[in-house]
Amino acid sequence: MDFVDASGQRVRRSAGTTDKAAAQELHDQLKAEAWRQSRLKESPARTWDEAALRWLDEKAYKASLKDDMQQLEWLHSFLSGMKLPDITAEVVCGILERKRKETSASTANHYLALIRAILRRAHKWGWLDSVPSFEPYPVKSERLRWLTQEEAARLLQELPQHLADMAEFSLLTGLRQSNVTGLEWAQVDMQRRCAWIHPDQAKARKPIPVSLNDQAIQVLRRQLGKHHRVVFTYKGQPVTQTNTKAWRKALKRAGIEDFTWHGLRHTWASWHVQAGTPLLVLQQMGGWASLDMVQRYAHLSADHVAQYAANVGVNGTKKTQAPLRLVSGTSQHIENMVGCEGIEPTTR
């Protein structure tokens, strides 16, 4: 293509196609746009690439920026070079339908949220006149997936040693995947039996104190001397990915379905609640921004309401008996209800 715009500037570039009719159409379109920009002072239409790059620059502080980058990498093949006004609801729906078929409706909604956030930001920048209306996929409420002690033992047995150590440490501390893979020796004090996650490493942007029990200390001792800076390594190099073929094959061999690495954190929290750890304490230990995030585990323990269960009886009679006692044979019933092992009968 070769033309001169209204300002006298010569434009020469490839049309990127061998179809002469398509090249001519693009030529006429660019020439008309150049005229409008010069004579009518219209701003050039911004592209998805420009918006995505500016988004990453402005959101550099996000703890989940790595997730955004992974999603943008997948979206690149569909949206790269596309002008923002051309990204309609229909276009986005067609793209996300592929992701929904590949993964799930919930995952597709995560991609939709990112697209919508970038387009809204572009509108704020003055790059886009209006933002299309998007309808997320309906998602069923799913049960919280966590492992029993027996399942956890099977999984650790099937994992290669470097992943087994990281998984065991996650089960003992509740740390997120990025905090485990990025843990450095400078963040560990084995004498004081503690570690810490810096605010810029935490999702809630608050420091997380990590208490280390005997098993967690043993895991760390097995890593001594492997690397001068990072704690967990594989063949002398820092581990960056945990969702690998080795992880998925180990899950299959252990007979564990519908489980992700993040489920180790759910398991840690579930075990704590079942053991009687107060939710406010668990919130601090897990680094959650609000108590609402911890409430999802509350149903795994009935201790905080058990003392009131005897207040109502048949015919509305108020009971004044002592708090409920667990007798022989009751623990198995509770195991079946809660879905976990290791609950022992207790007497108060």
Score class of each variant (00 low, 15 high):
L224M: 06
V210K: 09
D214M: 10
T173H: 02
L144C: 12
R145T: 10
E257P: 02
L172G: 12
Y137I: 01
F169D: 08
E151D: 10
F134M: 05
V219G: 04
Y234S: 14
L224Q: 09
P199Q: 11
V231T: 03
A246M: 10
H162F: 14
Q237D: 02
W196E: 14
E151H: 02
D200P: 01
V188C: 12
E150I: 01
E184W: 00
G236C: 02
V230T: 13
K226T: 07
F134P: 09
F169K: 10
V219F: 08
L159Q: 02
I256K: 06
W247S: 03
Q223M: 04
F169Y: 06
Q215I: 00
I217Y: 04
L163K: 00
W196N: 12
A167V: 06
K245I: 01
V219M: 00
A186H: 10
T242H: 04
T233A: 07
K140T: 15
E150R: 10
M190F: 01
W261K: 02
G174S: 06
R154S: 13
R192N: 13
L224F: 01
T173N: 06
Q177W: 03
T181V: 15
F134E: 03
Q201Y: 04
G263F: 05
T267M: 10
V239H: 09
L175W: 06
C194W: 04
V239T: 09
A250R: 07
E150Y: 07
R248W: 12
R265H: 07
P138Y: 01
T267G: 07
Q237C: 00
W247Q: 00
E135G: 00
Q215E: 13
S130Q: 08
D129V: 13
Q237F: 03
T148H: 02
A254H: 05
W185G: 05
L159P: 01
C194Q: 14
T260A: 08
Q161H: 14
M190L: 15
Y137E: 13
W146N: 03
R221V: 00
A275S: 15
K140G: 15
G276Q: 12
F259V: 04
L163Y: 02
A164Y: 03
L144R: 14
I208P: 02
Q241M: 11
R229Q: 15
V188G: 05
D258M: 02
A152P: 12
V210P: 07
Q161K: 11
D165I: 10
R205M: 11
R176G: 04
R253M: 11
E257Y: 06
P132T: 05
M166E: 11
H227L: 07
Q157E: 06
P207Y: 09
Q241V: 14
V139W: 09
W185I: 11
T260L: 05
T148M: 03
F169R: 11
K206W: 04
R221K: 09
S270F: 03
A275T: 12
I217V: 14
R221I: 03
P209F: 13
G236R: 01
D189V: 07
N213R: 08
E168S: 15
T148I: 05
Q149R: 13
K245D: 09
E168K: 11
E184C: 14
T244L: 09
A195I: 15
P132R: 01
S141E: 15
Q187L: 03
W261F: 15
L155G: 10
A246P: 05
Q161P: 10
D214R: 15
L183D: 11
